[in-house]
């Protein structure tokens, strides 16, 4: 069974260890602003919500890319940006309805979660198990997928 990142906002304290771990994994330094996972702070509600790519089946980013820079990692199910191929056109950033592909002006390329080749740094760094890497049909993920279908221009729902 393929694994996926499962996020339980109830457990998140907003410490941002995941953001640092992510940026360290991909850029070698601690830089939350470049993290592919982002923790949102709902101050009034007293809630922290970590958020990143669900590696959805629809893969709008992958299909929108004009140069095949985003490919599927068959072992993890991750949609991966190949930085050498990416021309930086940003079409994927507007195509992804989850807003999880972001342009990095320093590199001139986009970045998204690649599941760290099956060993996600964010999940390892999370001190409260708010982020875990578990079998794909665990809670939370399903709801996001439902929503994904709702956004779809018509390719998968009912297909």
């Amino acid at each position: 069974m393929q694994k996926s990142l499962t996020i339980d906002p109830e457990k998140c304290t907003g410490c941002l260890q995941c953001e640092m771990a992510c940026s360290y994994q991909s850029d070698g330094l601690f830089n939350p602003s470049k993290s592919r996972i982002k923790v949102f702070n709902f101050h009034e509600e007293g809630r922290f919500v970590p958020y990143t790519c669900t590696q959805c089946d629809e893969a709008w980013c992958l299909h929108a890319c004009p140069v095949d820079a985003i490919t599927l990692d068959a072992s993890t199910g991750a949609k991966i940006v190949n930085a050498d191929t990416c021309v930086g056109c940003k079409v994927c950033t507007i195509a992804c309805p989850f807003g999880t592909v972001n342009y990095n002006s320093d590199t001139g390329k986009v970045a998204k979660c690649d599941l760290c080749a099956g060993d996600p740094a964010c999940a390892k760094a999370c001190p409260t198990d708010a982020i875990t890497y578990v079998d794909a049909d665990a809670t939370g993920y399903e709801r996001m997928k439902e929503w994904a279908a709702k956004t779809d221009a018509g390719m998968t729902a009912g297909a």
Binding site: K38, K90, T93, I94, A95, C96, P97, F98, G99, T100, V101, N102, Y103, N104, S105, W147, K150, T151, A153
Partner: peptide
């Protein structure tokens, strides 16, 4: 705007 731009599409389309 470069961060999370896609949600604009997401909100419109959903």
């Amino acid at each position: 705007l470069t961060q999370h731009v896609g949600v604009l599409r997401g909100l419109i389309q959903s």
